[in-house]
């Protein structure tokens, strides 16, 4: 049963990633693209977790943790750059 649930999870996350890509490509300005990129990172973390459950191994969590941190810092850096034209003041 868990296997079918993970398949469902994979499909829904895949569709979500496609919608994020739509916003990333269409998005009228750079802020929309930043938001799409942030959501894309979070969805990728979900893929890592699902893959871990599917495989029954917990080796993916370091990658997921790093992805969460780097994704957050990326978003903050992009926003800082648009706000100030400079990242480290």
């Amino acid at each position: 049963m868990i296997e079918y649930a993970t398949y469902f999870g994979f499909i829904s996350i895949g569709l979500a990633v496609l919608m994020n890509l739509h916003r990333l490509i269409v998005g009228p300005d750079s802020i929309n693209r930043i938001l799409a990129l942030d959501t894309l990172t979070i969805n990728t973390i979900a893929l890592f977790i699902l893959f871990g459950i599917w495989q029954g191994s917990s080796t993916n969590f370091e990658a997921a943790l790093l992805f969460a941190m780097v994704g957050f810092i990326t978003t903050v850096a992009f926003c800082k750059y648009l706000l100030r034209g400079d990242i480290i003041e």
Binding site: M1, I2, Y4, A5, T6, F8, G9, I11, S12, I13, L15, A16, V17, M19, N20, H22, R23, L35, A36, T39, I42, N43, A46, L50, I53
Partner: peptide
């Protein structure tokens, strides 16, 4: 427990999908 885990995965997937649908 298997039912609970499967339900959590399905609900999580649906919410992630709704979030991205809203974004687009």
């Amino acid at each position: 427990i298997e039912l609970l885990i499967s339900a959590m995965i399905v609900v999580g997937g649906v919410f992630a999908l709704v979030g991205s649908f809203g974004l687009s």
